[in-house]
Design a protein around this nucleic acid. Structure first.
Length: 912
RNA sequence: AGGCGCGUAGCUCAGUUGGUUAGAGCGCUACCUUGACACGGUAGAGGUCAGGAGUUCGAGUCUCCUCGUGCCUACCA
């Protein structure tokens, strides 16, 4: 038996099967086109590489669903669509993960040594690193798995070294001692972006420092009293008169009994606190800068673990927070603590482990960012890169224009090791692509590679071109760069997007690429929140696991939910009730298929219709409309018109990344038009008896299957699984292509759009709904067929005559009588501007309810009429509004007058 | 401190350049197991678009203010 579809739609029974099939058959593999190959329009997109330690969350799923819809759409439109997947080695995150694992075995990395540890991480990666990509396969992501990359792959590592060396040679990478954000738990420097700020209730302590050679004091304020151990000055503002007498004096630093100068510096803001500020150059960025201006010594009082060191006097060995308490106690005891105030401050914490970050002077590698930023700003200003929604460009500019140099060295083991070798003999730094044999300056051979690794984002910032083979001049780079689109969340706008723009622009300009931007468009999607609009977070415990949702409702329904809720620029409050309803939608599609297949099978048996002939028409290769569609009857002309209108609108929606609009369009078309009306209208034609009927049935089947097949293609990027399953079944398991994903996406054929058919259909629908409506109102028994009377103009009468059967069947009508006079004074009536229809039914009606309804209607009409009249009476309006708007209102005014008169008649009649 | 966003039906959300009667899903009410589907069908109720002022012939849509709410950025001790 052909067309086998199980009775109930069960996503779990089909989805894993197709997911595996797509991967196994390498359906989305993209061969590099040969030089002399006929040119094809190319669509390239990079998957934002998830952390290799990652597990799929709703944000990923939204991101990937949107990317997949866009990629599948382009592929079906005939583009050479390359979607490149991969994972990120995620320095800190991965190292932490493995360290935790080691800890549970009672080991730690320092005991193991660097090499053994790294080997252990690789081992971990081999075992667990593919998890998130396996989850992706389950989503149906149509990536080219043969091109999967890992940011620590050999060829990507070569590219990273190349990029580093070039930037160094260009003077855009330097090494120096500066204040950086230091995480004492991760024991590494982190960039500004990796610090998250939390408003915290803290204290502001006021300390008094005695002036040397007198009995006066100067009072300074601090939130981190333990750093006073490293103070090397006190600053006052040169303009601040209060402290004029202290200019040139020194203070005795309490506890440490060290004389330190009073300096004059803008650092001190006379408006804040006492106007005097302690200066700790080794532990505060502002103080650090002031220290350089005044040539102050830097005294580091903490070690890399956040413990006080030997320069912290007898506090050495204490943890920084213990030291704080101890210092305060001692200051208090010795009378130097003069005040404690509540103070809220945005305290910086490590993005990874939430440990309070310690600003710390240390030697690090930096990228001199301004020259790169300038070009990257220009690229967006010029429109070479477009942000969608546009307002993200603002955020981008805001950040780029206030950018600081980028600290790219990390004191980790897992990552790309910095390609710099220190000469033990002459201290020369040798930056090189390959491990150097001897020092370039002194020729010595005692070279040690720098121990630091690069910030993870340094390598991911290069991906748009390194994944295509850079630094070699590959054919891939020629064909696929620049990528077409970057689709990602705003949370990595600065981390990743901005850096890709800076680095892509920089390096690909070097390559003299025709277009050096890494991507032409950036679509920023919104955050997926929970049903209560709360941000999903592990600590809140409100994280929805996409895999669980998929298991409950199916991947298609979950994908569709995300697409349907993904209006650009607004967050998504994910609600399972929506997913439930889209599972119903999938079920509807399933059952429509079953209905069609059931009839098709019978028609084939009866030799009424032939799948083979249908197959030969090759609809799936057609780009425009539904070729071969024969439309004499209204429902056929109408559904063809609707199909093309919807195709057109979907194209516009997808081109603008308006996923929710596209989803709603296809949903409404399939359910509200194709199923609710078209299938219902066509049903009688599917069971022919006479020869005439048989020949019409052939047309009916052709049309039914054509529209259905077209609708599957429209739906396919959104719901790839169910459409694949049904499409294969439609062709008896031997489809003309390996996948619906390789078929053509329907595009509108304007000549198949018929305003006339759509208008006529809407009148017929109104008529049917009106009769049903009267029946419901009168509580007519469901099965009872009743006569109706219609008063209407000749064209509507003609329309009804042509579709008499449909009206009778769908509205449960026994007979139709056209009357010559208005029915306005009759009961059981519905009135529109095109017709009056009355149900012939002798039964007491609920006069009160009926007149209530009339009154309500009347009120509505009158309000609208007064609005219309007001506008039409306004000369300004007539003069300035466009003609079609005026004309529309004028026409509506006429209609309203008629409706009001008729409704009044009806009311009067009820009164009798 | 700056910047961005949100407030539309009971709930969750749409509503692109201002233009005729503001939509969807869920929920709710009534009826219906009709040969694809109760994950269904038919009909229905439900909104002074947070509040105020302004621009305009015309504002859910543009401007300003107020209230409520969320987020991002920032080196104020």
């Amino acid at each position: 038996m052909p067309h086998e579809l199980s009775k109930a739609y069960d996503p779990s029974a089909i989805e894993t099967r197709w997911a595996e099939y797509w991967v196994k058959e390498k359906l989305f593999k993209v061969e590099t086109p040969a030089k002399d190959a006929p040119p094809k329009t190319v669509f390239t997109m990079l998957l934002p590489p998830p952390n290799v330690t990652g597990r799929l969350h709703m944000g990923h799923m939204l991101n990937q669903t949107e990317m997949d819809i866009i990629t599948r759409w382009h592929r079906m439109r005939g583009f050479l669509a390359l979607w490149l997947p991969g994972t990120d080695h995620a320095g800190i995150a991965t190292q932490m993960m493995v360290e935790r694992q080691l800890a549970s075995e009672g080991k730690n990395r320092r005991d193991m040594g660097r090499e053994a540890f790294i080997e252990r991480v690789w081992e971990w990666k081999r075992h667990y690193g593919g998890a998130i990509l396996d989850q992706m396969k389950r989503l149906g992501a149509s990536v080219d798995w043969d091109r999967e990359y890992f940011t620590m792959d050999e060829h990507l590592s070569v590219a990273v070294r190349e990029a580093f060396v070039r930037l160094y040679e260009q003077g855009l990478i330097y090494r120096g001692r500066y204040i950086v954000n230091w995480c004492p738990r991760c024991v590494t420097a982190i960039s500004d972006l990796e610090v998250v700020h939390d408003d915290t209730q803290g204290k502001l302590y006021e300390l008094r420092y005695p002036i040397v050679g007198g009995d006066e004091f100067i009072v300074v304020a601090t939130t981190r009293p333990e750093t006073m151990l490293g103070d090397t000055a006190v600053a006052v503002n040169p303009e601040d008169r209060r402290y004029r007498r202290f200019h040139g004096r020194k203070v005795m630093l309490p506890l440490m009994n060290r004389e330190i100068p009073i300096i004059l510096d803008e650092l001190a803001n006379p408006e804040f606190g006492t106007g005097a500020v302690k200066v700790t150059p080794a532990h505060d960025p502002n103080d650090f800068a002031a220290g350089l201006r005044h040539d102050l010594p830097q005294i580091t009082v903490m070690d890399e673990f956040g413990k006080m060191n030997q320069d912290a006097g007898h506090y050495a060995g204490l943890d920084r927070f213990e030291a704080r308490e101890q210092v305060l106690a001692d200051l208090q005891e010795q009378g130097f603590l003069v005040g404690t105030k509540d103070h809220t401050l945005a305290i910086g914490k490590c993005d990874r482990c939430k440990t309070i970050v310690e600003p710390r002077a240390s030697t690090q590698w930096f990228v001199k960012i301004q020259p790169l930023a300038d070009k990257a700003i220009a690229a967006v200003e010029k429109g070479d890169i477009k942000f969608i929604p546009e307002n993200y460009a603002k955020t981008y500019f805001e950040w780029m224009r206030n950018i600081h140099d980028w600290c790219i060295s990390r004191q980790l083991w897992w990552g790309h090791r910095i390609p710099a070798w220190h000469c033990a003999d002459c201290k020369q730094i040798n930056v090189a692509r390959e491990t150097p044999e001897k020092c370039s300056q002194c020729g010595g051979t005692h070279l040690e590679q720098d121990v630091d690794v690069l910030d993870t984002w340094f390598s991911s910032g290069l991906l748009p071109f390194t994944t295509l083979g850079w630094p070699q001049k590959t054919r891939d780079l020629e064909v696929f760069y620049p990528t077409s689109l970057l689709l990602t969340g705003f949370d990595i706008l600065f981390f990743w997007v901005a850096r890709m723009i800076m680095l892509g622009y920089h390096f690909m300009e070097d390559e003299d690429a025709l277009d050096s931007v890494p991507f032409r468009q950036v679509y920023i999607h919104s955050l997926v929140r929970d049903a209560d609009r709360q941000k999903m977070s592990k600590t809140k415990g409100n994280v929805l696991d996409p895999i669980e949702v998929i298991e409950k409702y199916g991947t298609d329904a979950t994908r569709f939910t995300l697409a349907a809720m993904a209006a650009p620029g607004t967050d998504i409050a994910f609600s399972e009730s929506r997913t439930e309803s889209y599972r119903s939608f999938a079920n509807k599609i399933w059952n429509a298929a079953r209905f069609i297949f059931m009839n098709v099978d019978k028609a084939e048996q009866d030799k009424v219709w032939s799948l083979e002939e249908f197959r030969n028409r090759k609809l799936y290769t057609q780009t425009e409309g539904l070729p071969g569609f024969i439309a004499h009857l209204l429902e056929d002309r109408w559904i063809l018109s609707r199909f093309n209108s919807v195709s057109q609108q979907m194209h516009e929606a997808l081109a603008a990344y308006r996923f929710h609009e596209a989803a709603h369009l296809v949903y409404h078309f399939f359910w509200g038009e194709f199923c609710d009306w078209y299938i219902e209208l066509i049903k009688p034609r599917l069971m022919p008896i006479t020869d005439t009927e048989r020949s019409d049935a052939r047309i009916a089947f052709d049309n039914l299957v054509s529209v259905f097949e077209g609708a599957l293609r429209l739906l396919s990027p959104f719901m790839p699984f169910i459409t694949e399953e049904i499409w294969h079944a439609l062709y008896d398991g031997t489809p003309p292509l390996k996948s619906i994903a390789l078929a053509q996406y329907p595009q509108a054929n304007p000549s198949q759009i018929s305003a006339g058919a759509e208008t006529e259909m809407s009148i017929l629908q109104d008529l049917i709904v009106s009769v049903r409506n009267i029946r419901a109102e009168l509580k007519v028994e469901t099965r009872a067929k009743l006569p109706i009377e219609i008063f209407c103009p000749a064209d509507v009468q003609d329309l009804v005559e042509r579709n008499r059967g449909a009206l009778e069947r769908l509205a449960n009508v026994e007979s139709i009588t056209f009357v010559a006079d208005s029915l306005a004074k009759m009961t059981n009536l519905r009135t529109t501007t095109r017709f009056e229809v009355r149900l012939v039914y002798e039964q007491k009606i609920d006069v009160a309810a009926e007149s209530e309804r009339f009154k309500k209607e009347l009120e509505k009409y009158e309000k609208e009429l007064s609005n219309a009249e007001r506008q039409l009476g306004n000369e300004q309006f007539l003069a300035k509004a466009p003609a079609n708007v005026v004309e529309g209102i004028r026409r509506r005014e006429g209609e309203l007058k008629i409706l009001i008169a008729k409704t009044k008649d009806g009311l009067e009649q009820l009164g009798k």
